[in-house]
Structure formats: structure tokens, C-alpha cells
């Protein structure tokens, strides 16, 4: 089970006109893995992620997500993934409970299951008694944690996180990563893009994109060893410096 591949990509490519945003990337992600997807701005990581989420069709290459083909089985993929965008993605004018109900409902959970999930989720986040609070009134860190919990409310096979911790203080980021570990322990695969190199070290494996290609893919420890670097920061700088194309 542990070696079951939930994401496979083979020479996945996306071109916009003459511009190749993603250039023949190949990788696998195993079930329950926390997979870090790194790259400078404009390296193509968001585009790659969008193809995997079904927001954008690949130009060529092959990929499967949760066992479904990105070209043919878009709808099935959508049912089996969760997504949290870099922009904050809850409705501020709805209460916590209404947000949970909405997203759980969209994924087709039964009313009974939604109730169960709501209680559980509020307990996990220590937000009991706050279900009628408008999301607008929550501190940013809480919002972010809530958004993550809601992104996996339907127990997806994979959750895609697009720079989920932007603008959050270090303590909240740590707490956020605790949630990610918990999700991973439950068997949810986490596919995360990030700018923060300390976060990269939390991942099981990390891929680094440069100019649309994957230039390195390994565990953080191996990457540092192979590049004789003291930190992921060093690894990243060594690779990113080779970039030719600008943002």
C-alpha cells in the first residue's frame, strides 16, 4: 500500500503559444507522501499543479491523479482531490459552519456526515462554540487552518496546496504543518508548493523546478548531501541561479 502511486506524470508539457511553461516533467507521488513542489516565481509550478487539478489541459505528455487520467477522467479527479489556493479561499461573509456545510455539500456528503464532520473539525481546531462566527472575524492564522481542514473535509486521496502559508507568522506556520502531518498520517497525500525553504525540509520529498523543468527531485536530506549544501536554501539558490528565463 505504502508504495502505491497516487500521482504519476510522464513528460507532462504545457505550452502557451511559443512559450513552454512546463517542459516535459516526469515524477511520481506515493500515497500518504508530503510532496514539496518548489520553484522560483514563473518556474511553472502553478501551471503544473493546475494541470493535475483539472483546471488546465496539458499540451502533451501523460498524467494520472488518484488513478484517473487527466485528459479523460477530469470529473473523477475532481471528486477525489482537495484544493486550497494561495488566495484565501473561504467565504468571509459566511459563518464557519456555513462554510463547512457548503464545501462538504458540494462534494456530496450526506447531511448526517456533514454534521459529524463539523463537530469533529471544530474540535480538532479548538474552535468549538465558534461555529456561528463569521469567517471575516477570525485571525488570519485561524482562517488558514480552517481553509485547510475544509479542503480535506471530504477525505480526498490528494490535497493540493498552492502556497498555503503566505503571509502567516512562523508559529501559525508550524501549527499549519502539524495539520498537514496529521492529514498525511491519515493517508491523504499532500502536494504542496511553497516559497519557504524551512517548509521544504518538512516534506518527505521535494522537487525543484527551474525554467519549466524539474532539475532536482529527492528527499531534503539527499538533496543537501548531493549539492554539498548546509540547508535547502543553499540547494535552492544553486539551482535557481541557473534559471535563464525571467518572471
Amino acid at each position: 500500500m505504502q508504495n502505491e502511486k497516487v500521482i504519476t506524470a510522464k513528460e507532462l508539457t504545457k505550452r502557451f503559444g511559443s512559450f513552454t511553461a512546463v517542459d516535459k516533467i516526469s515524477f511520481d507521488v506515493k500515497k500518504g507522501e508530503i510532496f514539496g513542489f518548489l520553484g522560483a516565481n514563473g518556474a511553472g509550478k502553478t501551471t503544473a499543479m493546475r494541470m493535475l487539478c483539472g483546471l488546465s489541459l496539458p499540451t502533451s505528455g501523460a498524467a494520472t491523479v488518484a488513478g484517473f487520467d487527466v485528459y479523460e477522467q477530469n470529473e473523477l479527479i475532481k471528486k477525489n482531490i482537495g484544493y486550497m489556493s494561495q488566495k484565501f479561499s473561504l467565504y468571509e461573509d459566511l459563518t464557519i459552519r456555513e462554510n463547512i456545510k457548503l464545501y462538504a455539500g458540494i462534494y456530496g456528503l450526506t447531511d448526517e456526515r456533514i454534521k459529524e464532520k463539523t463537530t469533529m473539525l471544530l474540535k480538532d481546531l479548538h474552535m468549538e462554540g465558534e461555529e456561528k462566527t463569521l469567517v471575516r472575524a477570525l485571525p488570519l492564522g485561524w482562517k488558514q487552518k480552517l481553509a485547510f481542514s475544509i479542503a480535506i473535509v471530504h477525505d480526498p486521496a490528494i490535497v493540493f496546496l498552492d502556497e498555503p502559508t503566505g503571509g502567516v507568522d512562523p508559529i501559525t506556520r508550524r501549527e499549519f504543518w502539524t495539520l498537514i502531518y496529521e492529514a498525511s498520517a491519515k493517508g491523504i497525500t499532500v502536494f504542496v508548493t511553497t516559497h519557504y525553504m524551512d517548509e521544504a525540509e518538512y516534506c518527505n520529498r521535494v522537487s525543484i523546478m527551474v525554467d519549466g523543468r524539474i532539475d532536482a527531485l529527492d528527499s531534503p536530506a539527499n538533496l543537501m548531501k548531493n549539492h554539498s549544501a548546509k540547508s535547502m536554501d543553499d540547494v535552492f539558490l544553486q539551482l535557481a541561479r541557473k534559471a535563464v528565463r525571467k518572471e
Partner: peptide
């Protein structure tokens, strides 16, 4: 603008 459209579009709706 607030980014929810993206999340909704990734959903099965």
C-alpha cells in the same frame, strides 16, 4: 477576486 472561484472550479460542481 477573492479566489473562491478557483476552489469551486476544482470541485465537482
Amino acid at each position: 477576486e477573492i479566489g473562491t472561484m478557483e476552489v469551486i472550479l476544482v470541485s465537482p460542481l
